[in-house]
Amino acid sequence: MAFKSVPVVPAGEAGALAAVADNRNQRLRRPEISDQTQIDPLTPLYCPDGAIALTAGRYAISERLCKGCGICAQESPGIRMVPEYTGPRGILN
């Protein structure tokens, strides 16, 4: 078999997952910010995935990191969950 190039001490690069993670396929629903003024400032600390942040005075949710758990929408009236997929459905639906 082809051996991988590995470090001597088994270890992973710090923070590397943040750069490559793509959690979109875990979502059935996605959070949508409907009102910036109705977001609890603690919401970023409730997010398990570090997917929501306040930057330049506005909250934004990462398309890539969000797994669609819905905690942010539970905690903040300014966020609501919408279906991830809105296109045509197959015969079973």
């Binding site: 078999m1 991988k4 992973g12």
Partner: peptide, 16 residues
């Protein structure tokens, strides 16, 4: 910083 002893898949384990 690095993460020591990460979960290692069959692709990597034999190399170690």
């Amino acid at each position: 910083p690095q993460g020591v002893n990460t979960v290692t898949s069959p692709e990597f384990y034999p190399s170690y």
